[in-house]
Design a protein around this nucleic acid. Structure first.
Length: 842
RNA sequence: GCCGGUGUGUCGGAAUUGGCAGACGAGACAGACUCAAAAUCUGUUAUCCGCAAGGGUGUGUGGGUUCGAGUCCCACCACCGGCACCA
C-alpha cells in the first residue's frame, strides 16, 4: 500500500495539538532550550518556499532536544505592522488590520500544514494592543532614561513611501523596501541613542556565538575608528576642530575642508567675500540625493572660503579653508584637515584646485598618487616626528597636542542615532504629547496601551505629516504635566520596534502586568539558538541587541545579550528561465544555430531580457514565473517530503536553487521507509552486519544536526536505507532506531509507522533520542590504502587494531607493492593509523 | 577602494580539517517487471589511452611547502554578499 500523506499528515497534526506535546512548561525540572526563528511578516503573497527552511531547521533541533529531555520553547508570532499591508489597504480601500488578520490566518494554515512543532499557545502579534502596550512602555523607559529625543534633523526621505527612513534602511542611496529615490529633508524626528551603546555592541560580540560574517558586518556598520581631534586657529577667531585618524600627518595638512552644512559658514557669513558662491554651493549640495552623491564620488567639487583662513598648529603656516560635499556633516566634527600627500580624496581635491602636496611619510611618490600605507613609511618634513614610524608618530603627536591643549585622542563611530518616527498610519502610536507650556511629555504608563485609532483615510501625505494628524479627536489631549491642552505625537514607530523585543514576550505572552515576569525572563533567557536572515544583520539584529542591552541596564532583562547563538540560512532561489543554461535542449540548439555559439546566444538573451539573464539562478518572482508555492508541494508530495527536501537541498547557510526533481528524491526515501514495514522481523536486535552502520548513522545524524549540516545527516539516513534494502527484511529494533532518527525531519510518516508497527508506547516524538556506542561505530577490519610515493597502488584489508610495523610489513608483502619497490631504496615509511601506508622510494 | 565569502562531474552538493576526490540526491544510459507507459527494482555513469588487465590526467589559474594538497602559503582571475567621499 502506498503511503498516503494526505490522510496521515493532518491526522498527526491534530493528535499533537490535542496532546499538547509541544507546549513549553513554565516550571520544569528539565533543562530549558529556547529556539527562535524570526517571526514572519504576514504578507499577502502567503508563505514562500523560503520560509520553511529556517523553520524546519530549528524544528529538527527543537524536536531532537525534546527527545533528549529538554523543556523546549519554540514559539511563533507575527510581525504585523508594516507598509505593504498599509499600501494594499490604501489601494483597495480596506482597513490594514482586516487584511493583516486575513493574511495571518492564511500563514497559520500554511505553517500548521508543515508540522512545525511551534507552541501555538504562546503566539504573539505586534498589532495587538496587549502586545504594543509593552512596545510603547519600552519607548517610555527609553525616553525617561534620556535615550529617546526629538530633534530637527536632516533625514532620509523615501519619495515613494512618503516617509523617513533610518540609515539602516537606505541601501545604495535608495529605499531598502521599495527601491525608490531617497532625498534629504529637514524634519523633526524622534531619535533613539543607539550610538550610546556603540562600544558595547562591538565588545559584547566576543561573548556570543554568531557566524564571523555577522560579527564582521555589524562591526563594520558600527565603524569604530581611532584618531584625534585637533583645534586649528582661524583668522575669524574661532577654533575649527577637526577629526583625523592620521594625526601623524599633521605637518602635511596644507588646507582644510568643512562640510556645506557646517554651522561656521553662517557665523562667518559677514567675513566671506564670496558668500554668494558659497551659498550657491550649499544649495547644490542640498539638492543632491544620496544616489547622486555616490555617483559623483570621484569628481571633487568645492568652493574656497575667501576672507577666512586657518593656521596649521604645528607648522604655523596659514592655510585656506574650503567647503566641499566630500566632507560629511554627520561624521566626526564635519571638518577635516586635508593632507593630500597621504589621503587619496584630499589628493584628488588638491590636484583639481592646485594646492600644495607635502610629503610627510616617505615611501611613495606623492606627486603621482597619495601614499596611504601606514606600515612601512618613515616620517619626514615633520619637526618633532622626523624619523619615527607612523605608529610611533601617531602616539607622539597626540601626546604633544594634549600637552599644548590643542587636541586629544578620540574615538569615532560611523553608527548614527536611530531615526525612530514614521509618517504613516499602520504602526505603534508614539506615547508622547506636546504641550505649548511644558514641551514634550510622556503619557502616564497607566494610559497604555495608547490605541491606534480607526481612521477613514490613512494615505500618506506629501507634506510629510502623518495621516493621524487629521484625527483631531484623537490628537487633542491634555498635558499630563500641567493639565492644559496638548497634542499627541502623530508619527508612528517603525516596523523594527515590535520585533526588537518580541522574543521576551514569548517567555510569558499573556502577562498583563509586565512585558514578562521576572521568573519567566530568568528561566528562559538567553535564547539558546536564533536563526534568521543575513539581511537583518544591521537592522533587526542590531536594533534588538540595543534594546535588550537597555532593558538589561534598567533591570528588566537578565542578560546583556539576547541571543546566545545566531545562525543564518541561505535563500531558496529559482531557475532563471531566460538563462541559456536553463533552456530546453532543443531551444539551446536552435539558438546556437541562429547565433553561432553558446556565448553569442547568451548575449542575445541578455539583449532581449536584460542583464539579469546572465544569472542562471535568481530570486523567485512572479514576472519570471518561477515561484513555487509550498501548498502545492505539501499537497502533491506531503509536508515530510517538503521538510526533507528543504533540509537536503544544500549547505544550509548558502543559497540553493529549488529543484522539483530533487523533491522526488526525498519522497523516494519516504516511500522506501514506508515499505520497510512489509518485511518486519520480530526481533529487537540490530543485526550484526548492520550494527556498525546503525551506530555510525546515529552518531552522524546527532552531530550533523548540531552544526547545521542537515544535508549530510539526511544523506547518512539515505545511505543507511541503501544498506537496509540490500538485506532481507528489517528487525523491529532496527526500524525503531531508523524511525526515531528520521522523526525530527519527517515527523508524520514516522509517527504513523511508530503506531502502526507498535514500536513503542506513546508518540514517536516523545521517545528518547537514540544513543550510540563509540566503540561500535568502528569496524573490526578496515581497508587501508598503500601508496608508493604518494600514489595509490593497492588496498589491504587489515584488523582495525593493527600496529604501524604490522601495517608496513603487510604493505611490503603485497605482491604489487613488492614489485614496485623491488630494487629501490626506501627513504621513508609513513603510516596514518586506520588510513594508509605511504612508502617513499628513491 | 574596504570588509566577508565562494569557485569540485551534466546538475544540487560530499570529503572526519593535510591522508582513497566525487558520499548522498537528481539527471542520463542499460536491464527486469508491463500489451504499453508511469511507478518500482537492479546495474552503469569525472575524464583520456587501452579489447582487457592496467595506466595517465583531474577540485578557477600560475607558483610554493609537504612523503602526500580540494584542504596550508604566495600571486592572480571570476563570481556572490555587505559597506563605501566615514577623514
Amino acid at each position: 500500500m502506498k503511503y498516503d500523506h494526505r490522510a496521515t499528515e493532518p491526522k498527526w497534526q491534530k493528535a499533537w495539538e490535542e496532546a499538547g506535546v509541544f507546549h513549553a512548561e513554565d516550571k520544569s525540572e528539565k533543562p530549558k532550550f529556547y529556539a527562535l526563528i524570526e517571526f514572519p511578516y504576514p504578507s499577502g503573497q502567503g508563505l514562500h518556499v523560503g520560509h520553511p527552511r529556517p523553520y524546519t531547521a530549528l524544528d529538527v533541533v527543537a524536536r531532537k532536544r525534546r527527545m533528549q529531555g529538554y523543556n523546549v520553547l519554540y514559539p511563533i508570532g507575527w510581525d504585523a505592522f508594516g507598509l505593504p499591508a498599509e499600501n494594499y489597504a490604501i489601494k483597495n480601500h480596506v482597513h490594514p488590520e482586516g487584511i493583516t488578520r486575513q493574511n495571518i490566518a492564511n500563514f497559520t494554515r500554511q505553517i500548521k500544514a508543515l508540522g512545525i512543532s511551534f507552541d501555538w499557545s504562546r503566539e504573539v502579534c505586534t498589532i495587538d494592543p496587549d502586545y504594543y502596550k509593552w512596545t510603547q512602555w519600552i519607548f517610555l523607559q527609553l525616553y525617561k532614561h534620556g535615550l529617546a529625543y526629538k530633534k530637527e534633523m536632516n533625514v532620509n526621505w523615501c519619495t515613494s513611501c512618503k516617509c523617513v527612513l533610518a540609515n539602516e534602511e537606505v541601501v545604495n542611496g535608495v529605499c531598502e523596501r521599495c527601491g525608490s529615490e531617497v532625498v534629504h529633508k529637514d524634519k523633526s524626528q524622534w531619535m533613539l541613542k543607539i550610538t550610546e551603546y556603540a562600544q558595547r555592541l562591538i565588545d559584547d560580540l566576543d561573548t556570543v556565538d554568531y557566524p564571523d560574517r555577522v560579527k564582521a558586518q555589524q562591526k563594520n556598520w558600527i565603524g569604530r575608528s581611532t584618531g584625534a581631534e585637533v583645534d586649528f586657529a582661524t583668522s575669524a577667531g574661532d577654533q575649527l576642530t577637526i577629526y583625523t585618524t592620521r594625526p601623524d600627518t599633521l605637518y602635511g595638512a596644507t588646507y582644510m575642508v568643512i562640510s556645506p552644512e557646517h554651522p561656521y559658514i553662517e557665523k562667518w557669513a559677514d567675513q566671506l567675500a564670496n558668500i554668494e558662491a558659497v551659498r550657491e554651493y550649499q544649495a547644490q549640495a542640498a539638492r543632491k540625493s544620496d544616489f547622486e552623491r555616490t555617483e559623483m564620488q570621484k569628481d571633487k567639487t568645492g568652493v574656497r572660503l575667501e576672507g577666512v583662513t586657518a593656521v596649521n598648529p604645528v607648522t604655523g603656516k596659514e592655510i585656506p579653508i574650503f567647503i566641499s560635499d566630500y566632507v560629511l556633516v554627520s561624521y566626526g566634527t564635519g571638518a577635516i584637515m586635508a593632507v593630500p600627500a597621504h589621503d587619496s580624496r584630499d589628493w584628488d581635491f588638491a590636484k583639481k584646485f592646485q594646492l600644495p602636496i607635502i610629503e610627510v611619510v616617505q615611501g611613495g611618490n606623492v606627486q603621482e598618487a597619495a601614499f596611504t600605507d601606514c606600515d612601512t613609511g618613515v616620517m619626514v618634513n615633520s619637526g618633532i616626528l622626523d624619523g619615527l614610524s607612523v605608529e610611533e608618530a601617531k602616539k607622539r603627536i597626540t601626546e604633544y597636542l594634549e600637552e599644548q591643549g590643542i587636541g586629544h585622542a578620540k574615538v569615532n563611530y560611523k553608527l548614527r542615532d536611530w531615526v525612530f518616527s514614521r509618517q504613516r498610519y499602520w504602526g505603534e502610536p508614539i506615547p508622547m504629547v506636546y504641550c505649548e507650556k511644558c514641551g514634550w511629555q510622556p503619557i502616564p504608563e497607566s494610559e497604555l496601551p495608547l490605541r491606534l485609532p480607526q481612521v477613514d483615510s490613512y494615505e500618506p501625505t506629501d507634506t510629510g505629516e502623518s495621516p493621524l494628524a487629521h484625527m483631531t479627536d484623537w490628537v487633542n489631549a491634555s498635558c499630563p504635566c500641567c493639565g492644559g491642552p496638548a497634542k499627541r505625537e502623530t508619527d508612528t514607530m517603525p516596523q523594527w520596534a515590535g520585533s526588537s523585543w518580541y522574543f521576551l514576550r514569548y517567555m510569558d505572552p499573556h502577562n498583563p502586568n509586565a512585558l514578562a515576569s521576572k521568573e519567566a525572563l530568568d528561566y528562559w533567557s538567553p535564547i539558546d539558538w536564533y536563526n534568521g536572515g543575513m539581511e537583518h544583520t544591521t537592522l533587526h539584529l542590531l536594533y534588538s541587541r540595543f534594546w535588550h542591552k537597555f532593558l538589561y541596564d534598567i533591570g528588566v532583562a537578565p542578560t546583556a545579550e539576547p541571543y546566545g547563538k545566531r545562525t543564518s540560512h541561505g535563500m531558496i532561489l529559482g531557475f532563471n528561465p531566460h538563462n541559456f543554461q536553463n533552456l530546453p535542449e532543443e531551444e539551446q540548439k536552435r539558438l546556437v544555430e541562429e547565433f553561432g555559439s553558446e556565448k553569442k546566444a547568451q548575449e542575445a538573451l541578455v539583449e532581449k531580457y536584460g542583464e539579469m539573464a546572465n544569472h542562471p539562478i535568481v530570486k523567485m518572482s512572479k514576472s519570471l514565473n518561477n515561484v513555487i508555492n509550498p501548498d502545492d508541494i505539501v499537497e502533491e508530495y506531503g509536508a515530510d517530503t517538503m521538510r526533507l527536501y528543504e533540509m537536503f537541498v544544500g549547505d544550509f547557510e548558502k543559497a540553493a536553487p529549488w529543484s522539483t526533481a530533487g523533491v522526488k528524491g526525498c519522497r523516494r526515501l519516504i516511500d522506501r521507509y514506508w515499505s520497510l514495514r512489509e518485511e518486519l522481523v520480530d526481533s529487537d536486535e540490530l543485526r550484526p552486519q548492520l550494527e556498525t552502520a546503525f551506530h555510525r548513522t546515529i552518531k552522524k545524524v546527532s552531530e550533523d544536526t548540531e552544526t547545521l549540516k542537515f544535508n549530510t545527516a539526511i544523506a547518512a539516513l539515505m545511505a543507511l536505507m541503501n544498506e537496509l534494502t540490500a538485506q532481507n527484511g528489517i528487525t523491529r529494533g532496527e526500524l525503531r532506531v531508523f524511525t526515531l532518527l528520521l522523526n525530527p525531519f519527517a515527523p508524520h510518516v514516522t509517527e504513523e509507522v511508530w503506531a502502526e508497527c507498535g514500536l513503542g508506547e506513546g508518540l514517536a516524538c516523545q521517545q528518547p533520542w537514540p544513543r550510540y556506542d563509540e566503540a561500535k561505530t568502528k569496524e573490526s577490519t578496515i581497508e587501508i590504502v598503500v601508496q608508493v610515493k604518494g600514489k595509490v597502488r593497492a588496498r589491504l584489508n587489515v584488523p582495525a587494531d593493527i600496529t604501524k610495523e604490522e601495517a608496513i610489513a603487510a604493505a611490503k608483502a603485497e605482491d604489487k607493492i613488492a614489485g614496485e619497490i623491488a630494487g629501490k631504496t626506501l627513504v621513508k615509511e609513513i603510516y596514518v593509523p586506520g588510513k594508509l601506508v605511504n612508502l617513499v622510494t628513491k
